[in-house]
């Protein structure tokens, strides 16, 4: 089962996305802030990382950098962004992010994008 590392500080959103992915037979590991995300990254070695850009303790850009610095595995990163963060999104792409989803997002669309990314890495 593909493993997703989901880094999102909003409890309800994290819960909802986690449940959605589980219903789609995807394994989900959650982190509620940037630091927890950075800690879980090397331990879990997910198949894909889904991260918010604005996080406590470490920004989404740091997460992107950390994921792309992993040499053992090429892990795609999808970032959540809020409207108006286009310049930060550009920065994230410069650092190697693979896709972004603007908030508010559709759960269905999110799932499709995740599955597409996973297919690309197979």
């Amino acid at each position: 089962m593909p493993k997703i590392l989901l880094i999102e500080d909003d409890n309800l959103i994290r819960k909802t996305v986690e449940l959605k992915f589980k219903k789609e037979n995807l394994d989900v590991v959650c982190a509620c802030d940037g630091r927890e995300g950075l800690q879980k990254l090397p331990l879990e070695m997910p198949d894909i990382v889904l991260t918010d850009l604005m996080l406590p303790y470490a920004s989404g850009l740091e997460i992107v950098s950390a994921v792309k610095a992993i040499e053992e595995k090429d892990i795609p990163v999808i970032i959540f962004s809020t409207m108006g963060q286009e310049h930060i999104v550009q920065e994230a792409f410069r650092l190697g992010a693979d896709d972004f989803i603007a908030k508010p997002f559709s759960l269905t669309e999110l799932t499709i994008r995740i599955k597409n990314q996973l297919k690309k890495t197979e």
């Binding site: 909003d10 309800l12 508010p104 997002f105 559709s106 269905t108």
Partner: peptide
Amino acid sequence: NAKKNLKGAAS
């Protein structure tokens, strides 16, 4: 808060 983040059927 959830509505700010989600759209579509969930919204």
